[in-house]
């Protein structure tokens, strides 16, 4: 939970790194070979932080090696939520997958381990 690494230097006070778990909750599901993660801000003021930092590219990096396709992101400001589609995430899909978590249920909480710069 302590800020690892150096800040980008510009801001005088360095934002504290926190796991997403402290700012959001999540649930995932599956459709074919795509897993989805709905990431929901715990408070309305956290939503813009998620929008800014939890980009599709960052999520793709977070799950590098675990998914074969790209990551798409959709915004649901009305629910304070982001929806990520992780393509090629399930080894062919829930019914044929040899993954332990064949329906991708744990992608949600696995994402909550990602560290981002928390609110100041």
């Amino acid at each position: 939970m302590t800020g690892r690494g150096r800040g980008r230097g510009r801001g005088r006070e360095r934002a504290k790194k926190v796991p997403l778990l402290e700012l959001a909750h999540a649930r995932s599901g599956d459709k074919g070979d795509t897993a989805n993660i709905g990431l929901i801000a715990n408070r309305p003021e956290y939503y813009p932080i998620l929008v800014k930092q939890v980009t599709a590219a960052r999520v793709a990096r977070h799950f590098k090696g675990m998914i074969k396709g790209n990551v798409e992101r959709y915004e649901l400001p009305n629910l304070g939520a982001l929806n990520f589609l992780l393509h090629g995430a399930l080894d062919g899909g829930g019914t044929i997958s040899l993954k332990t978590d064949a329906q991708g249920k744990v992608f949600s909480t696995a994402l909550l381990r990602m560290e981002i710069e928390g609110p100041r």
Binding site: H25, A26, R27, S28, G29, D30, K31, T34, N36, G38, I40, N42, Y74, L76, L79, G80, A81, N83, L85
Partner: peptide
């Protein structure tokens, strides 16, 4: 609202 929202985003594709 929190619990219902989790279900709303469950198995979601393009939300629009």
């Amino acid at each position: 609202v929190a619990g219902v929202t989790e279900q709303l985003v469950y198995e979601m594709g393009n939300p629009a």
